[in-house]
Design a binder for these strands. Structure first.
Lengths: 255, 255
DNA sequence: CGTTAGGTTGACTTGATTCAACAACAGTGG
DNA sequence: CCACTGTTGTTGAATCAAGTCAACCTAACG
């Protein structure tokens, strides 16, 4: 399939903006062994307590990290898009401390743990690039803490929309016209730490005010500036200066 | 100074549990150049938007990371103890995406950016250990998201107490009898994403129930098991078992 | 078709906020 | 030594954002 090498090249290019790579580094990345796998929406890629056998690269579709409390409440921690590794940490830490679930049907490549360990042992610059990548993830977690801790549900929801759209855009995965957020209201609720019922009301409120226009799960934003203002969105935390934008490409988001 | 080398040795020992180091690695860490600095409580070590000139190692005192929203609300993201680096990420990313403030009066060592970069370039295992260290920070951020997003203020506060005590204990910094949490109620509030008034009420409630015993800011916990239960505390996310994750044959289950 | 997952809406409750007053205390300087 | 000032902690009363419960609607699908 062309799609695999296409995504791998995209990921290599992303890493090159994190740290300068030489030809050997690029080649080592492109020649990583992998196993292709299809995962349908809502299935688990990683479970808390697992000792992952490999790192997972998303080729197509979306995934999210989550934890559930002892009371059974789920909190979504981050959303990931094609080209993202979703458990590099699982390769370096011993056990997974959270779950990873497919948000939509996904195509993934599983790279054996030993191959990753060998790669980072022998290619310092690749390791460096991956480290920077995980540091950017950290920054996104920090902003997420602010989002659930100190923003109103209105602002938090707008912030989620802003972050997601911006990341898709930079990855070259957004359609120019609108933007399809393939999350159920329950998932949005779990991302914001509120209830699905309340998500519904806030969405309607934003729609009534004209900040967003909904058509099923597709959301159009007529005025990004206005939405960013409500969200208090400052994209510094995405560290886009360490990410060179990429030419657009269609992503199938079949939920 | 004895205190400096004492903390540096402590930090080296911590790193050794993240990745195996050889004599050269240890020496390189211990011989890092640094500049000593005293910082009084509440002063900033790093400001959002800064391009840090170096990494900061806490020698004595506590510090915390925070962000403020456009509405002026502060959210505390993590608390750090002696032996922690508080802006390794600032050395690898270009600009700081959050603030770091001294929680108490602090003694810190500032290690020039170039020295860190040189160190990680020439000592792969040290870089690896630091990477793992930042991955554990990530895990703590994830748990923090759950704490503010999906736990009641009661449970969240108890969880904060559990995490803090456990980390101090592992670092060998806790006094056996009780435990002094040098945070104001306002800071606790900013850590949990609630108001100081509410923190006050919850503390009193916990005190009334006998879960904690307060004397000024010193908190004694008569029954950790009970507190952990209320908190829903599961220390897996602290990765306290983290030992030699990298050995290629490390597939053998050693727990 | 019936079944199911997701979405919508109203009525009511609650956990947490807001506002405001006051108490305890530490530090400062006259 | 005491008055003054600022920070932190405490408490009550009123209010509000979000949660809960429950009914019902809609579209997709085997």
């Amino acid at each position: 399939m062309t799609s695999v090498s296409q995504i791998l090249h995209r990921t290599v290019r992303k890493f090159e903006t994190r740290a300068p790579l030489d030809e050997g580094d690029r080649e080592a990345l492109l020649n990583l062994p992998y196993e292709l796998r299809s995962i349908s929406a809502n299935r688990y890629m990683v479970r808390e307590g697992d000792r992952p056998r490999g790192a997972t690269l998303i080729l197509d579709g979306l995934a999210f990290r989550q934890k559930v409390t002892v009371e059974g409440m789920r909190q979504i921690l981050s959303v990931h898009i094609p080209g993202d590794f979703v458990d590099l940490e699982g390769t370096l830490l011993k056990v997974a401390d959270h779950n990873v679930q497919a948000l939509t049907d996904c195509e993934i490549a599983i790279i054996p743990r030993e191959a990753i360990i060998d790669l980072v042992d022998t290619h310092a610059k690749v390791a460096h690039a991956m480290w920077v990548d995980t540091l950017i993830d950290s920054s996104i977690y920090r902003e997420w803490i602010v989002n659930v801790g100190r923003r109103s549900s209105r602002a938090g929801l707008c912030h989620l929309l802003c972050e997601f759209s911006r990341r898709l855009e930079v990855a070259g995965l957004s359609e120019p016209g609108g933007y399809d957020l393939p999350m159920t209201q329950e998932q949005i609720a779990d991302a914001l730490g509120i209830t699905p019922v309340h998500v519904n009301r806030v969405l309607r409120e934003l729609d009534d005010e004209g900040l967003i226009v909904r058509n099923k799960r597709a959301i159009r934003v007529p005025n990004w500036t206005a939405l960013r203002k409500v969200a208090g969105f400052n994209e510094l935390y995405l560290h886009l200066d360490q990410v060179r934008p990429v030419a657009p490409m269609a992503m199938s988001v079949s939920s």
